[in-house]
């Protein structure tokens, strides 16, 4: 494997966003790119990352390899990179370590680190293609704000999408709270757009603790996409450049 990222910051942000959810995971490398899939310890949430080969230049992966990496170790090394550094990941065919090289485009500094790899026996889940009842695209910062606000009142949020809009509501010991967003197009500032595509109304309840955790990815993309269907996990997607993505799936809470 030899994969060169124009900005080390991208990988730094991705790992930073998921490191509190998952600890040890395999980075599966093949000629289409670098993928990661991992569940959190309680098996409620699933992280799925895809960094497509096109996100790197150049990208070369001659043989499929799984790099088992402890994310807190990876984060320690990524913190040694400046945000603007160029990052090159390298690994042999049957690697014991992954090699990270940081190059400054402005100076002649070159830093090199090796991280020891781990043997990780990870369950791989098949995620079915889903036609979602509701797909909401909104500013990532807005979603983060709503989750942070509502977690002050309750541990769960009900997300209800109708033709009127999308309503985030919660109830807790001190009282209730709700935030409703309607579809909104801002020609001047398209980054503030809220788009709700609905084939049928849907209402589901989720644990806010996980949603707040997912929102650590807000720095990766201006927009977040929420996809909901009855009785299936919520998909929270942050789209990255070159069709790469960071997706989170969260199992709903279902009342008896």
């Amino acid at each position: 494997l030899e994969a060169r990222l124009e900005q080390a910051n991208l990988l730094k942000k991705v790992v930073d966003a998921i490191k509190d959810l998952v600890q040890d995971c395999n980075f599966d490398c093949n000629d289409s790119g670098i993928a990661l899939q991992a569940m959190d310890n309680s098996h409620v949430a699933l992280v799925s990352m895809m960094l497509k080969a096109e996100s790197f230049s150049p990208f070369r992966c001659d043989r499929n390899i799984a790099l088992g990496i402890n994310l807190s170790s990876l984060m320690k090394v990524l913190r040694c990179a400046q945000n603007e550094d160029i990052l090159t990941l390298k690994a042999d065919d049957a690697p014991d370590v992954v090699n990270l090289v940081f190059e400054s485009s402005e100076s002649d500094r070159l830093s090199e680190y090796d991280i020891k790899l781990m043997d990780i026996d990870q369950e791989h889940l098949g995620i079915p293609e889903t036609e979602y009842s509701a797909t909401i695209s909104m500013p990532a910062a807005e979603f983060q704000r709503i989750c942070r606000d509502l977690i002050a009142l309750s541990e769960s949020v009900a997300i209800e999408a109708t033709k009127e809009g999308v309503k985030f509501s919660c109830s807790g010991d001190i009282g209730n709270g709700a935030v409703t967003l309607r579809s909104h197009t801002n020609v001047e500032k398209p980054e503030l757009n809220v788009d709700i595509a609905l084939s049928e109304p849907v209402a589901l309840t989720f644990s806010l603790k996980y949603l707040v955790n997912f929102c650590k990815a807000s720095g990766l993309s201006g927009t977040v996409k929420l996809c909901l269907s009855s009785e299936v996990p919520l998909l929270v997607e942050y789209t990255l450049a070159s069709n790469s993505y960071l997706r989170f799936y969260l199992a709903p809470k279902i009342g008896d």
Partner: peptide, 14 residues
Amino acid sequence: QSGQKSIKSFFQKR
């Protein structure tokens, strides 16, 4: 957590 589903009950093991 009452009513919290596991993600494994929705996605099949590959």
